[in-house]
Computed example of a mutant assay.
Amino acid sequence: MSWVTAFLGWLAEFFGDGANWTGSDGIPARLLEHLEFSALALALAVLVAVPLGLAIGHTGRGGMLVVVAANLARALPTLGLLVMFVLLLGASSIWPVIIPLVLLAVPPILVNTYEGIKGVDPELRDAAYGMGLRGGQVLGRVLVPVALPLILLGCRLSAIQVVATTTVAAYTGLGGLGRYVIDGFATKDYASVVGGSVLIVLFALFVQAVFALVQRVTVSPGVSRRLNIR
């Protein structure tokens, strides 16, 4: 149980230190930086992946290419991309961090959006066309509401991955909660390492809870039960 005692001691030391709650290095400031990086990367990924997934899922063209490309993109090492973009673009801006995060976030959103639209019952499509709706109307009024649980699931998976991976922003000298982990390892300040890691985990759990709430509010209960998505 010695490791438990040490862990709790480091937590108490980190969160009990008043210096960790104020200034540009304080928890509120680092949390806000982490949120800004994560939100920007996720927003850009949604802007790219959702329209593309909707178009491909609705037309049925290029679906296999999307799945293959997304699976290949998932295999890309985020840290390796980060180093590459830092070398190419320099470390004076946030883009060497944002670009790898966007590349990380796009595949789950793209695949889930595509699969969600593609998986809508063909009879439902036919009924919508039979009522006189056109392509864009069928997509917006029928297909998207039915596919929304899978789309949100893709966004939730991406958001959690981005929040966890934004820790690497500290490698370029930028802020975020990763500063506690990276700087803590560099200086052997294990209280900072443990405290920062716990904050990142709690932040990821909070993001998951937010998306679960959004799904509960926006998705029809009947659709959720049919797809068995929580």
Rank of each mutant, 00 (worst) to 15 (best):
S2P: 13
W3H: 13
W3A: 15
V4Q: 14
T5S: 15
F7N: 12
G9V: 11
W10D: 14
A12H: 12
E13H: 11
F14V: 13
F15Q: 11
W21D: 08
W21S: 05
G23D: 03
G26V: 08
I27H: 02
E33T: 14
L35F: 00
A39Q: 06
A39G: 10
A41S: 04
A43S: 09
A49E: 03
L52C: 07
G53N: 04
G53Y: 01
L54Q: 02
I56Q: 01
G57R: 08
G62Q: 00
G63C: 08
G63N: 03
G63V: 10
L65C: 07
L65D: 06
L65I: 11
V66G: 00
V67P: 00
V68D: 01
V68R: 07
L72G: 09
A73Y: 00
R74C: 07
L76R: 05
G80K: 05
V83R: 03
L87I: 15
L88Y: 00
A91V: 12
P96C: 08
V97A: 09
I99G: 06
L103C: 11
L103V: 12
V106M: 09
V106P: 10
P107K: 02
T113E: 03
E115K: 07
G116R: 01
V120C: 09
R125N: 09
A127F: 00
A128C: 14
A128N: 12
M131Y: 04
M131W: 06
G132F: 01
Q137A: 15
L139I: 14
P145F: 11
P145W: 10
P145R: 09
L150R: 04
G154D: 03
R156K: 15
S158Q: 13
S158F: 12
A159G: 06
I160T: 04
I160C: 03
V163Q: 04
A164M: 11
T167D: 10
G175R: 02
G176S: 05
L177W: 01
R179N: 14
R179Q: 14
I182T: 11
A191Y: 13
V193E: 03
V194F: 01
G195V: 01
G195E: 02
V198L: 05
I200Q: 08
A204F: 08
Q208C: 04
Q208T: 06
A209N: 13
F211I: 11
V214E: 03
V217M: 09
R225Q: 13
L227A: 08
